[in-house]
Structure formats: C-alpha cells, structure tokens
Amino acid sequence: MKIGFIGAGSMGSLLIGAFVRAGAMRPGDIVVSSRTYSKLSTLADQHPGLQPVSTNMEAASGADYLFLCVKPMDFRKVIDEISSVLTKDQIVISITSPVKISSLEELLPCKVAKIIPSVVNAVGSGASLFMWGNRLSDEDQTALWKMFSSISRPIVIIEDEVRVASDISSCGPAFLACLLEQFIDAAVMSTGMERETATELACEMMLGTARLMLEQSCSPSELQAKVSVPGGITAAALEVLRKSTRGAFLQVLYTTHEKFAEDLDRVDSSLFSSERT
C-alpha cells in the first residue's frame, strides 16, 4: 500500500496525524511532498517511517490513494506535474471545495473523489463530506468510507451543496469558537472569573451540548426548552441573545457563498485558461 499526500500544510498534516493515530494508515505507507521542507521534516519526526519526497511526481507515482491538500489556485500546477504518472486504477482525493470533480476527471486519467474534512477530525470527531466521482467502483467507495470512518462521520452530499455543508462542518468550529470566546470574555469581564475556569466550563458545556443533541436526538429548539422555563433567567437571556444575533448567520452564509462563487470562477479559469482560449 502506498498513500501519497501532496501538501503538508495545516489540513494535510492534520489528516496524516489523525489517520495514523486511528490506525487507518501506517507511517511506512505514507509518502508526502511539500514546497516547504521544514513541514516534511516535522512530519517525519512525528511519524517515524513516513517518507518525505522532493517532488509531487514521486508522491503520486504508484500511489493507491493520492490526497491533494493544496490551495485551489495551485491545482493546475500540481496536475501538470503528476498527470503523466497517474493511471486509471489510482484514486485521487481532493479536499478542496472550489475544485470541481468534473474538472479533475477531465484533467486526470484516474478515479476521483472529493472529501472535505474538518479540523475536529483531528480528535476523531465531526463529519467528513463525501462527493463521488463517476469512475469509482462500489469497492472504492467502501474503502474510502471505511478510511474516513476511523476519524469522522462520513456524510454524502451533492456537490452543489458543498459550500453550505462546509460552512456548517468545516467553518462551523471557527464560528462557534468565535461565539464561545465572546461568552468567555463576558464571564471574565462581568464577574472577574479566572479565564482558565471559564474556558474549561465553556468547552465542557459545548461538548455536552453536542452529545446530548446527537445521542438523544434532541433538536436545538427542544434543548432550549429543556433548559429554560417561561419567565426564568435563561428565557430572559435567550430573548436578548436572539435579538442580538438575529440574521447574523444569514449574513455569514451570504459572505461565504459570495466568496465561493468568486473562487469557483478563478479556479475554473486557472484550470482551463489555455484549453479554452
């Protein structure tokens, strides 16, 4: 088994670490290329047996699975470097949402999947978003599903919904962390509570909230009703919170979708500018 990674940035390194800790990959099976040697050196130190290589072609050649963990605008350069060594039986996994599966299938001779991870996969939690290419067999899909099940809960989505799904599963941890930070700041500023204590309480609260909603099939509305009673402290505070945040996430989604539309156009132009002129 050979598993190639092109790109050793935050998400590439996160996936390697998560898969190794979960036992889904052995370091000796992993080959990684990156523009930054220090990142490869760090990975090799963290996972003895992992093989750093100096070119993307070396990472791609003969890889059963090849993860493309690079920025959208770098895809064309990488594709030009590796396409000649790829074969129809290899599987390329793109973790980059603005790069379409149809574009990759047009430019590469191999099988293609798009799988969007989340930062919380580092602790074996959260979702991974699955979109299948047309060349994958049932066996290929099963193998990828099993691989990502070791670090996440795989969920199949349609590619047209990748932006909003990513907003929830991939950007969501940052959005909630932003709100949680404000909650912690307010506790510290208003009462003088130690920040460490407030942070510990907030994190345990968020973890327990997610478990309660998932394990007891409790909807957000039901959970609010469980905690608050009419005329009580929580009910009064919820009303303030709702007024303060009304429409905020709609604006967040408008912003991400507008930026995503721009990225789609830029990526498409970068991938096919020479062929379509």
Rank of each mutant, 00 (worst) to 15 (best):
F130V: 08
V162L: 04
T197H: 13
V227A: 07
I101T: 09
A186H: 09
L201C: 12
P98D: 04
T234C: 00
A186G: 11
A210G: 12
C171T: 08
E194R: 10
H47F: 15
F249S: 11
A8I: 02
S97I: 01
S97T: 09
K111Y: 10
R211M: 12
P173Y: 06
S13I: 03
E194A: 14
A8Q: 01
K71D: 10
D263W: 07
E161G: 12
E204D: 15
K71M: 13
D185E: 13
S13G: 06
G232A: 12
M25F: 14
G17E: 04
N134P: 03
R276F: 00
E258K: 15
A210M: 13
L107D: 03
G126H: 01
C203Y: 09
G124N: 03
E196H: 07
D64R: 14
A59S: 14
P98W: 08
V92L: 13
E105F: 12
L144D: 06
I115P: 10
S270M: 13
G28D: 12
L212I: 04
V252W: 14
T55F: 11
V99K: 10
E196C: 09
E194Q: 06
S94Q: 00
V20K: 01
S38P: 05
L66F: 08
A248M: 13
A113G: 09
L201D: 04
F175S: 10
E139L: 05
F249G: 06
M73R: 00
G172W: 04
S103A: 15
V162D: 10
T96W: 05
E81G: 12
S270R: 14
D263N: 14
C178L: 14
S13H: 11
A22G: 03
A143D: 06
G12Y: 04
V85F: 07
G133L: 07
K146I: 13
G247L: 02
E258C: 04
G23Y: 03
A236V: 11
V162R: 05
A235N: 07
S41K: 14
S190D: 10
G9L: 07
S170A: 15
I184L: 06
K114I: 02
L40N: 09
M11G: 02
T256Q: 05
V78G: 09
M205D: 12
S149M: 12
L40D: 04
I16W: 05
A143I: 05
W132S: 07
R35V: 08
I82Y: 10
I116C: 07
P48I: 01
T199K: 14
A236L: 11
A202P: 05
M131S: 00
E258V: 02
K39W: 00
R195Q: 03
I115M: 02
P98I: 10
L176W: 14
T96H: 02
P72S: 09
S61T: 15
L176K: 08
